[in-house]
Design a protein around this nucleic acid. Structure first.
Lengths: 148, 148
DNA sequence: GTAATATATTCACTTTATTGAATATTTATT
DNA sequence: AATAAATATTCAATAAAGTGAATATATTAC
């Protein structure tokens, strides 16, 4: 009936349930009140980037965002408006309401020269591991924002 | 011929040239090799949010400033993994660290049937204005996530 | 390898979106 | 207010997107 809603539902189902193949997914969709042909489901899977991969419990349909790192990286790049610093701290300005997400992204980086972050609504304070390395930390952040 | 291309051209033209009304724009489009009816142009202007406003040099068609709201809409669509509800509340699961951003987006919608939101890291609680309208609120959220 | 299972594609049909000509409505001018 | 100008809407036609049944291709199992 409605493609947008159906594809959102597919992402929802795959997030909380297991589907070993498209027929499983078909059945789960049916349970959710959405009837669709396998042909359509195949096309949906292609459009959503869903892959079938083998794990310890056999095969599974997996959403591409279950490896969220790269996707978030792309998001963060768009969200960040500016990066500035004084002698002791770095301030990142973001789109409205996006500071927390950017901070969360920086927080989860391994071996990072960042001591910690505090997020407001559109402003993120970044405290470097050492104030003597502010400029390196800025470069580090910039490098981690660009997708290349 | 191609709507996407035509609308992009319209934005391009209005950035560099002046158009006092849709007929001017029609002529400028024609010069750019795009022929279109006034009815279509009227629809394009509506979809692009183009307004006719009076300035010192007379009337002008003006593009809406790039407001960050539309950019964020695209971000939020990717961040949301699932939308589920019981009888009284809605839970939205998001990519790690993105719940605050999604909540912020929902909070700023006008005339929304949402009482409020509370964000964790990857989980957002949405309290509807009325528990009797949970399903409508879910539809409302879904509608506001898709860019069309 | 072959059989079984899973997914993708083709074809025919339906639904939705896009469009121009004509017309109606709204907005500006005098 | 009357008229002119500009924009929006209706209607009918066309184009594009979405869909399922059947079928072909690809993948996994044996």
């Amino acid at each position: 009936m409605n493609k947008q809603v159906r594809q959102q539902k597919i992402r929802e189902i795959l997030h909380r349930r297991e589907a070993g193949n498209q027929h499983d997914l078909l059945r789960l969709l049916d349970e959710a009140g959405i009837k669709v042909a396998q042909a359509t489901l195949s096309r949906d899977c292609t459009e959503l980037g869903i892959m079938r991969s083998k794990g310890v419990h056999g095969y599974r349909l997996v959403l591409p965002e279950e490896n969220p790192g790269n996707i978030i990286k792309g998001l963060v790049e768009v969200e960040v408006l500016s990066i500035q610093a004084n002698e002791t701290a770095i301030i990142i300005k973001t789109l409205p309401g996006r500071a927390h997400g950017v901070g969360s992204f920086l927080d989860q980086l391994k071996n990072s020269p960042i001591l910690g972050t505090i997020a407001g609504d559109d402003t993120l304070l970044v405290i470097p591991a050492s104030v003597s390395q502010i400029s390196q930390v800025i470069s580090y952040i910039q490098d981690n924002l660009s997708k290349n």
